[in-house]
Every structure is written in structure tokens, then in C-alpha cells.
């Protein structure tokens, strides 16, 4: 009888070793970025092996940390390499004419029902997909402001939990929706960040 946890750790450590070995041998900037993405996946495997509710609650922050660092680094890489001309055309295949609005709407609605982190990620993905087929336009400031305010709302919700625990109901509603708006807004910003800054 092999203990399950040790078996899982064996797989996770082996994956970590392989991933880091590849990173050690790699010299190209973009390849390194891709490998860091791989490392993030292995990180989550370590947490997922715990199998408790806490593990799940730790995976969500871990995920968001990974993707946010990826976003920041990819932008630094772009500036560093001097890629300044925005990409011109979008994907011109027939499924892109019909699929995005429907799929995006489904995902956004489902994300709003989910709320919280998961909802934010799902809805954000939907919005990105929608922006793929449309011109993003000048909505950057608005989305950013919304996300800033929702962040503040979440902080307020946190303090309600800590200072006035009897109002937990209000706090959980506030927190759930604030995180939803926050994560969704941030993710959808990537969709608008494809083209020209002044588009």
C-alpha cells in the first residue's frame, strides 16, 4: 500500500525538477516566460494534493498570483524587446462571426451567477473573447475605475467581517460581488490591451 499523498508528492516533485531543469537550460526570453507558466501549474499541483477545503481556498489566490505576474512580465517583455507596432487584424474565420457573442454572453452570465473569484475569471474570459471579435474602443479608463472601486468595496467587506461580524451577511454579499467585478474587470482589460493604446 503506497500512501496517496507521498505518491502525489513524488509526481509533483518530479514535475518541478523537470520544469526547473528545462528552465536552467533555456536562454531565450519568451521560452523562459512559457516555462514560468509551466512552473505555476506545478505549484498548484502541490496545493491541490492536500484535498481539503483549505487547499481549494489556497489554490484560488495562487492562481490569481500566477496569472497577474504573467501579465506584468509579458508587458515588460514587450517593452524590453521593443514590440511597439500593434497587431492589425483579428482572426478571420467564419466561426468567429457567430460564436463570440453567444459564448461570451453565456460565460458572463454564468460568471455573474458564480460570483467571487471563479465568477470573475469565467466572466473575464468571456469578455476577452468578445473583445477579440470587436474593436475594444475607449473603455479602458471606465473599466479601470470600476475595478479600483470594487477593490475598495472588498476591503470594506473584509473589515466588516473582522470588526462587525454580526453583519456577516452584508459582508459576504459585498465581498462576493466586489471580487467578481474586480477580477472580471482586470481580466477584460487584457482584451482591450491588444491594439493601439489610443484606439
Amino acid at each position: 500500500m503506497i500512501p496517496v499523498y507521498s505518491l502525489g508528492l513524488l509526481g509533483a516533485f518530479a514535475s518541478a525538477g523537470i520544469a526547473f531543469y528545462a528552465l536552467m537550460r533555456e536562454t531565450d526570453g519568451l521560452h523562459r516566460l512559457l516555462l514560468t507558466d509551466l512552473v505555476e501549474v506545478v505549484t498548484l499541483a502541490f496545493i491541490a494534493l492536500l484535498g481539503t477545503d483549505l487547499a481549494e481556498a489556497l489554490i484560488l489566490p495562487g492562481l490569481v498570483v500566477g496569472v497577474s505576474e504573467l501579465i506584468a512580465l509579458s508587458e515588460i517583455f514587450r517593452i524590453k524587446e521593443g514590440y511597439t507596432r500593434p497587431p492589425a487584424d483579428t482572426l478571420q474565420i467564419e466561426v468567429m462571426n457567430t460564436a463570440p457573442p453567444i459564448l461570451a454572453a453565456l460565460l458572463v452570465i454564468y460568471g455573474i451567477i458564480l460570483s467571487g473569484f471563479s465568477g470573475g475569471a469565467v466572466a473575464g474570459l468571456g469578455v476577452i473573447f468578445y473583445f477579440l471579435s470587436r474593436d475594444p474602443g475607449e473603455r479602458f479608463e471606465l473599466i479601470e475605475t470600476a475595478s479600483g472601486y470594487s477593490w475598495v468595496l472588498w476591503i470594506i467587506a473584509f473589515f466588516i467581517f473582522m470588526v462587525f461580524p454580526q453583519h456577516w451577511f452584508f459582508a459576504v454579499m459585498l465581498a462576493g460581488s466586489a471580487i467578481l467585478v474586480k477580477v472580471m474587470a482586470k481580466m477584460s482589460l487584457i482584451g482591450t490591451m491588444r491594439g493601439d493604446p489610443d484606439a
Binding site: L91, Q92, I93, E94, V95, A99
Partner: peptide, 13 residues
Amino acid sequence: TLESNAIASTYAG
């Protein structure tokens, strides 16, 4: 189906 359609039309294109 959407996925294979997308692959097919990109490939054909």
C-alpha cells in the same frame, strides 16, 4: 464542433 470547425477553417484558409 466549434473547435474542430475553427481548426478546419484556419487550416483550409
